[in-house]
Computed example of a mutant assay.
Amino acid sequence: MKRLRSVFQFFLLIGGLYFLPVVSVFADSENDTDKKELDISLSPKDTLFDISNMKPGDWAPRTLTVKNSGSKDFNYYMHLQNNGEKKLYNELLLEIKSDDKELYQGKLAAFKSLPARKLTNRSDENLDITIRFPEHLGNEFQGLDAVFDFIFSVERKNSTAIQAVTKGQIESGGVASAGLKLPATSTNLFNLMLVGSVLVLGGIVLMIIRHYKRTKIAQ
């Protein structure tokens, strides 16, 4: 009897080892199916904003394409994550539009999330995203940067969400020599006025010298 029980346990063990790879294959197959049904992708994929020497009054428009590459319709969500210092990040402005419809306008740091947006299978939509550097920011923002992620997610039942991420990085530029941060157009206007003033002053001096010479000759 004991011998028969031992033989039975041996065959049970062999059977378990035999069917284990089959169960694993079925599990992997289910995961692959789940990924094919729900699949979100972005373009550009890695980096949406990579801007250096941004100054007060500057703005940077970008277009981000969100694509449903799976076989099922889904709702996706978008939120931001700050990965750097807060000082400049807290002041930058963000605008988001889709088909000229405004979805958000306000501070970058105040953005929480877009309401759920539906994408049918094998379709995509463009989001027009603009970041603005406020004109009033002064010298204390010179040389600072803001680093953040745009995170897009699709929720799955009884499982972790599928996510796609694209990055943003903004670096502020220098300031005007007068100690006031000016847009490039203001600096150019100041230079033109300065050159014009010098030319006018030079012309007046030449007229005085010419008048003095004529008066001396007449005497």
Rank of each mutant, 00 (worst) to 15 (best):
L64Y: 02
K118Q: 11
L206D: 01
E135A: 15
W59N: 12
A184R: 13
Q169C: 12
K36G: 13
E125G: 03
K36D: 14
L42E: 03
M78I: 01
I162Q: 14
A110W: 00
A146S: 09
F190E: 12
A27P: 01
L192N: 08
I14V: 14
S41I: 00
M78Y: 02
R214G: 07
G57Y: 05
T166I: 07
D124Y: 11
I129A: 11
T215W: 15
R117W: 09
P134H: 09
P56S: 12
N90S: 06
L20P: 00
K181F: 10
T187L: 13
D34N: 14
V165K: 11
N158E: 14
G15L: 15
L93C: 05
M1V: 05
Y212W: 04
T160F: 15
K157M: 08
L88W: 07
I170R: 02
Y77I: 03
V25G: 07
G57Q: 03
H136C: 07
D50V: 00
V147T: 09
V147E: 12
D99A: 07
A178T: 05
L119G: 05
L88K: 00
L180G: 03
L64N: 02
K55E: 14
F8S: 13
I129C: 10
Y18W: 10
S6E: 12
F190W: 11
N188D: 13
L48H: 08
L206M: 03
K213Y: 06
Q142Y: 06
V23S: 15
G202R: 00
S186V: 07
I96M: 09
D58P: 02
S6V: 09
E140K: 03
L64A: 08
Q81E: 13
V23P: 04
F11G: 01
L180H: 06
A176T: 02
A110C: 04
N31S: 14
M78S: 02
A218N: 06
K167T: 00
F10D: 15
A178C: 04
V23A: 12
K97C: 08
K67R: 08
K55H: 08
L12E: 09
P61A: 05
N53L: 15
S24E: 09
R156Q: 05
E91V: 07
I131C: 11
Q9N: 10
I14H: 04
A161F: 05
A161G: 01
D73F: 05
I129E: 10
G168P: 02
K107L: 15
V23Y: 10
D28V: 03
Y76N: 00
R132H: 10
S123D: 05
V66Y: 03
M193G: 07
V154C: 12
S69H: 06
D100Y: 10
Q169D: 12
G173Y: 05
D73H: 09
D58V: 01
